[in-house]
Design a protein around this nucleic acid. Structure first.
Lengths: 253, 253
DNA sequence: CACAGGCCTGAACGGTTGTTCAGCATCTAT
DNA sequence: ATAGATGCTGAACAACCGTTCAGGCCTGTG
């Protein structure tokens, strides 16, 4: 039954989150027909969805309870009545989005097979609002997000290893570190989606799903062909090592 | 007595900032000789520096005027007296940081020669607070930041081309797009510096400058050796092309 | 029918925010 | 010495925030 709730919520979210009386009637209809177990439906889920959408769009502190309530078609005190406080609402949203993304990820992994595409791009097409929320939550921090990031790393590590055995991905001297940096780069690039859209014409986070080819092509080229020389590599590492040696020589007396 | 505490805190903060000798000389000169042009020194700069530091650390909306004033060792209304409003203060900070980074960048380019290191890493060692502010400002958006990002792209493009002629960097089918994506990835990874520190042990944004080798090594490996197969590349591009074709076939009736 | 209980709301409260205002020192110029 | 800027402050203000409270609507149950 919990699943059913989730499905309804998702469909609701996919329909751009209009909270008209019509939609309210529809949800009421759905709840009224079948479920015998304690429903507790309707407004509670609408509030959560509105919060997720608005937090994802504008950030946590930029959104007031009144705006959330307004988008959910309810009053502000009701938000407090259902979720104890705004902070707790955020915690619930964090947990919900985390769970939803975890499920979506494993599903998409099953479907896509051992294709180590960009994690971010994997999620984008169907769950844009979740991804937006996720990015805001990553920026804001919090233990839920730390856990989620960890599982993303583990998942990435896992099916990158599969792809490596298939010869699609080349081995690394430190697969875990590589996976982490790739995740950081992928999600980080999405956090700058505004600049990405300005310079590349489109971003995975805006409404139209088209025009991503320039970005995909650039990323693909960077990841399939070496970008810089081995000599470059050596110089980079040596300068950094020299710098760190200099630091540690100077500081610890 | 409270003031004294504040002042100490500020000086400690300022000693990390390390103003340019040029700026220090100018300010001292003005105050000492009684320049005819509007002096308005001392507190005004302190407020600006405090604002930059706090905005960079906690974000624009997370910092109140009172906190800025407290760190600058003045009262809140004085902030309004010097800078018309909080929004205007942010605009001034944007312009100042932008200008400072522009200057620093050209200097570092001169010094480093045609070494297309990470732009971010280039700035980090000496101007961490500026970089923190920059990342927050990128996240918040604004025309000043758009302009700055554009010049970063142009600069990157320019001396990547130099490095290319020296054989340190390999050519691209679209150098501009590649430069943009590299910038997005570099800065974006820094925006997730919390996760970076958790998984890689250190981040360029925290106080100690050591321990960056894991990150540098992973980045260097990604950029010097191909990550995935050409077959992988083909599949990636084709799936995206197919997806976009499907979209454009369905939508424009 | 009465009545209890779960949604839900309007009004109101305390706290914080950015900003305004009147006035206090300090200094310069007349 | 007087007048006038200038730099700066404490007190106060309106607006908004998250949250509380008392009560109204609706539904199910005796």
């Amino acid at each position: 039954m919990w699943k059913k709730v989730v499905v309804v919520v998702y469909q609701y979210g996919a329909s751009r989150i209009r909270h008209n009386p019509l939609d309210a009637a529809v949800t009421h209809n759905i709840t009224g027909t079948g479920n015998t177990s304690p429903p507790k439906l309707e407004a509670r889920e609408r509030i959560r969805d509105a919060a997720i959408e608005l937090f994802g769009e504008h950030g946590f502190n930029e959104v007031s309870l009144k705006e959330i309530a307004c988008r959910a078609g309810v009053s502000a005190p009701l938000v407090i009545h259902h979720y104890e406080s705004k902070r707790n609402l955020r915690k619930v949203c964090d947990a919900f989005v985390t769970e939803q993304i975890r499920r979506t990820k494993t599903e998409s992994v099953r479907i896509a097979g051992p294709m180590p595409r960009n994690h971010a791009l994997e999620l984008i097409q169907s769950h844009r609002h979740l991804l937006k929320y996720l990015l805001q939550a990553f920026a804001a921090g919090g233990p839920e997000m730390d856990d989620l990031f960890d599982t993303l790393v583990e998942d990435s590590l896992e099916y990158t290893a599969e792809a490596e055995q298939l010869g699609l991905v080349y081995p690394s001297t430190n697969p875990r570190h590589r996976a982490v940096v790739l995740l950081l780069q992928s999600f980080g690039a999405l956090m700058l989606h505004h600049q990405m859209k300005r310079h590349l014409g489109a971003s995975p986070l805006d409404e139209e799903s088209e025009g991503l080819l320039p970005y995909m092509a650039a990323v693909a080229e960077i990841y399939t062909r070496p970008l810089m020389n081995a000599e470059m590599y050596r110089e980079l590492m040596e300068s950094q090592q020299a710098f760190e040696r200099e630091i540690s020589d100077a500081s610890p007396p």
